[in-house]
């Protein structure tokens, strides 16, 4: 796909992935026969109409869910062979989630929220605080450390969520409609942040149904009825990047 990636190991490989839900007697195919390879430091946007399977795909990639059939290999590890506990530690170490609904702990302040994954990683308190502060500074929230989610704007909440996703240095940042609950101004803010994170060497997969948002990514995948309809590089971004360099 990308010339640069030929000599590198893929970060994730999906081989013939299907996800079937049983609704009563009826089988609902959320995903059908998905094949997808993503390399480190790619910036991928997944688009598609509602119900096309975007979130289902993200949940499988994020190890929150397992496919009905097919193989998913993350950093060379076959996810099928892992149990619940292993999946939890994969999520903890390798994945950083950013959700549309922010999903912050409402009663914990920004710092505590960002610390959370580090608690489950078993990292001691002083290091936890230090790393959480660093992550919050990197998203530009150094003066909001002790604010609770309800004391922050939508954009700021999403930045806390991004800091939480970054704090464990994961291999993969997954964002499902991260700007869906934001006004366009804060949305742009967040997209600028994702761009910066990508530039720092992170891999990002982003779900959106807005073309404009998708245009920030380097590669755009379109889903329809649980299948990949198209998978192409974003000419705009590639051109734009090469001009910048």
């Amino acid at each position: 796909m990308n010339v640069n990636n030929l000599n590198r190991n893929p970060l994730i490989e999906l081989k013939n992935i299907s996800k079937v839900y049983l609704v009563g007697e009826e089988q609902v195919f959320a995903l059908r026969d998905i094949n997808l390879t993503i390399y480190p430091n790619e910036y991928v946007a997944i688009m598609g109409p509602s119900g096309s399977g975007k979130s289902t795909l993200m949940n499988i990639i994020g190890c929150l869910d397992t496919p009905t059939t097919g193989e998913y290999i993350l950093k060379g590890i076959n996810i099928r062979e892992l149990d619940d506990n292993d999946l939890a530690s994969i999520r903890n170490k390798e994945i950083g989630f950013v959700f549309q609904m922010f999903n912050l702990l409402p009663r914990a302040n920004a710092l505590k929220n960002v610390e959370l994954p580090l608690i489950y990683a078993g990292i001691n308190k002083s290091e936890r605080i230090e790393r959480a502060k660093k992550a919050l500074i990197s998203v530009g929230l150094e003066d909001r450390l002790t604010h609770k989610p309800n004391e922050l704007s939508g954009g700021q909440r999403q930045k806390v969520a991004i800091a939480r996703a970054l704090v464990t240095n994961p291999s993969l940042i997954l964002a499902d409609e991260p700007t869906g609950n934001l006004d366009s101004k804060s949305g742009e803010d967040i997209m600028r942040l994702f761009h910066q994170i990508w530039k720092e060497g992170n891999t990002i997969i982003l779900v959106t149904h807005e073309r404009e948002i998708a245009m920030n990514a380097q590669r755009i995948i379109r889903l329809r009825d649980g299948r990949i309809e198209s998978d192409e590089l974003n000419p705009q971004k590639v051109v734009f990047e090469s001009v910048e360099e």
């Binding site: 929150l64 506990n85 999520r91 702990l105 994954p117 489950y120 464990t168």
Partner: peptide, 16 residues
């Protein structure tokens, strides 16, 4: 419930 979901998403194991 949502809090539990968040905790699990960021890596909380069952026993935690």
């Amino acid at each position: 419930t949502r809090e539990i979901g968040i905790r699990k998403a960021v890596g909380a194991k069952r026993r935690w």
